[in-house]
Amino acid sequence: MTDAEWAAVRDLVPVPAWMGGRGGRPEGYCHRQILDAIRYLVDNGVKWAALPTDFPPFKRVHAFFTRWRDTGLLTEFHDRMRAAVRTAEGRAPEPTAAVIDSQSVKAAASVHSSTRGYDGAKRINGRKRHLVVDTLGLLLMILVTPADAGDRATAADILPALKAKFRHLHRIWADSGYTGDLVTWAKTKLALVVEIVKRTDDLSGFRVVPRRWVAERTLCATRRSVCIPGSAGRNSEGGSWAE
């Protein structure tokens, strides 16, 4: 990472015990090196053991990642960076509107059958990632399920957690896959207006659909099927979600 990026996250990294006078041995690796290794792994989609030797040993990197993930540090990194980007764009740190969408992706044969399913509409055997983004396309929440999980049922799991985290959120744009009882339920139970943005029927081929394109752009930027290691919860379809 650049010096500017490191300056933005340095104060978020926990101070080692020995530096705070709480005992223990000095750590053998700089936190900046650890973060660079984690970013490399995510960006390139490699296995932990495939980290280049330029980085600290992968077992140490994995240990730091696990510790930071379980204490919510990585989520805090992401939330603060999102708030900073929104502020720089002249927006409030917390969004008031969002877009929800999903995308089915193929899973390798090695992926356990209990964590994947068949999406008949898309003819894809794999997993489905359900994303909620703000109007800039910045990620608010993600839920990974088997590909046969329904959009409406999954949204019913996502929206309560989303509303609890973003209290000022009052409007969600979605495609026609989210029509039905979900719209009434969200308005009654969560004070969320789910507005369906339909594609014009007389258009053929690719067209940019208002509002929905923001979520679709984010989905295109996250093509790799990743295992979400968040411990925030599990939904009724067996998927795990992370903020």
Rank of each mutant, 00 (worst) to 15 (best):
D3Q: 10
L12I: 06
V15K: 12
V15L: 13
R22G: 03
R32D: 03
L35M: 13
L35Y: 06
A37F: 01
Y40R: 04
Y40K: 06
D43Y: 12
D43R: 14
N44P: 05
N44V: 10
G45Y: 12
W48G: 04
A49P: 00
P56E: 03
P57F: 07
F58R: 05
H62N: 04
F64D: 02
F65A: 06
F65I: 04
G72W: 07
L73T: 10
E89N: 14
P93Y: 15
P95M: 08
I100H: 02
S110H: 09
S110A: 14
H112M: 03
R127Q: 05
V132S: 01
T135G: 00
M141W: 14
L162Q: 01
H168D: 13
W173F: 15
G177L: 07
T179A: 06
T179F: 01
W185Y: 12
A186M: 04
T188D: 13
L190G: 06
V194T: 04
K198C: 04
R199S: 08
R199W: 07
R199D: 02
L203R: 13
G205D: 12
F206H: 15
P210D: 08
A215Q: 02
C220P: 03
R224W: 11
S225V: 12
S231Q: 08
N235Y: 06
S236E: 07
